[in-house]
Design a protein around this nucleic acid. Structure first.
Lengths: 229, 229
DNA sequence: CCAAAAGTGTTTTATGTACACCCATGA
DNA sequence: TCATGGGTGTACATAAAACACTTTTGG
């Protein structure tokens, strides 16, 4: 038989979980309370179970940790270096997730001894998890430049200033306010509400929601920027 | 022990092998001479062996098939649907490769009952291989728009017309000759030789080689197109 | 009345796009 | 001498980037 004699491997998923709040872009990390690498910092992961695919495994791990389902989840790639995990040969498929940091279940996070850390302050991570994070941020930057996926990191209603701060956090650079507004409004993916958010200023800032239909149209037409040959 | 009781899986690699010649963009496919799906068409694949990572496995599979090593090889992603392979549960990591179609070993290819097929004429493929091909072409298009990776598909020395035909094949659309030359030459990644290729015209066309140093510089500065926020 | 954030337009520059003719050569 | 592919430049349109002031309002 064709498959006989072939080696089998443990298959894991690891999740690079991005969040965003007033302090900036953050990652959800674990302090491992088990061997190997107990006490070190890592991404949240888990093993693939028989009845699920890796995306389902990642979603399961994510829901277990944050209480959230239906989050933005995208596969990065597989990591398969022979000794990447010193405890056993494990092939890991990395996923990155964008979640609304306000909505997650704090109790679940604490139960796992997980914590949010600013992107600028990421500690040393075990195995190849740093490499996964670097790939994830690169992917997020590329993706956010062509599609407005950043909305997944914000509450349902948000101000343009919040959205701009998010983009500034993702790209780690300042953006001109006028140009940013011009550009993002020209895409038509935002609905302006009559409601204002008065938390951050006396004058108040208009709230916006995300327009999913416009997003789909944008996606079909190839994104914010067409492919220039 | 942490890893105990976890299921293990067969891990495969599948290669989407792109080639290019005067007829256009092509894919190297196999007619399977073994079950399951004997007689159907598929990508070239193989199982992960214990001492190698998936990239090495893909390179091994590729060298076995084409006689080529040191080819452009990039991971697409893992495919892990539970029933993707009806013969067994197999998690497959897909790689796409860009090879110089003239240089491959024809004997090896024939030995595997493999054959080149034009991108426009791809037959029905087994399992999720069509999905892999679709992802691969999308990735190739995106990548080729930002980095001049197309050179991997051409001989060492090539004419601008050849290069343009390659881009036209990748994007399946015509490109204006003057604009294409302006743009590609402005990147500085081409070395113009004094030598001419006289095969395709009486006048002859100047040959170019690829400038790897300029490529690296371009890569560091974020590609042909910067990220527009 | 003032501090603090919200909101708004115009000019300049760079990049992309459309478009048509002459050149060199071998047969 | 002519058929064939090689090679070139300019004008227009669109998009990005730079840049500073006015508005609102709660304290």
């Amino acid at each position: 038989m064709f498959y006989e004699g072939k080696s089998k491997y443990l298959v894991a998923v690891d999740c690079i979980i991005f969040g965003f709040d007033s302090e900036g872009l953050k990652l959800l990390l674990l302090e491992r309370n088990f061997e190997p690498a107990k006490g070190k910092f890592s991404l949240m992961g888990g093993f693939l179970a028989e009845g699920e695919n890796t995306e389902e495994a990642a979603a399961r791990v994510l829901e277990d940790l944050t209480g959230l389902n239906d989050v933005y989840l995208e596969q990065l790639q597989a990591f398969s270096a022979v000794n990447r995990d010193p405890g056993a040969r494990v092939v890991s498929v990395a996923y990155y997730a964008l979640i609304n940091i306000e909505e997650h279940n704090h109790a679940s996070v604490e139960k796992h001894s997980a914590f949010w850390v600013r992107y600028e302050d990421i500690p040393e991570l075990i195995f190849d998890h740093k490499q996964m994070v670097d790939k994830a941020i690169a992917r997020l930057r590329r993706k956010a430049a062509t599609m407005p996926i950043g909305f997944n990191l914000l509450p349902e209603k948000f101000t343009l200033t919040q959205l701009q701060k998010l983009y500034e956090a993702i790209y780690q650079q300042n953006i001109d306010k006028r140009n940013f507004r011009k550009k993002i409004l020209s895409t038509g993916v935002l609905n302006k509400l009559t409601e204002k958010d008065k938390k951050s200023s006396r004058r108040g800032a208009f709230l916006f929601t995300f327009n999913f239909e416009a997003y789909k149209r944008l996606e079909e037409s190839g994104g914010l920027f067409g492919v220039n040959i």
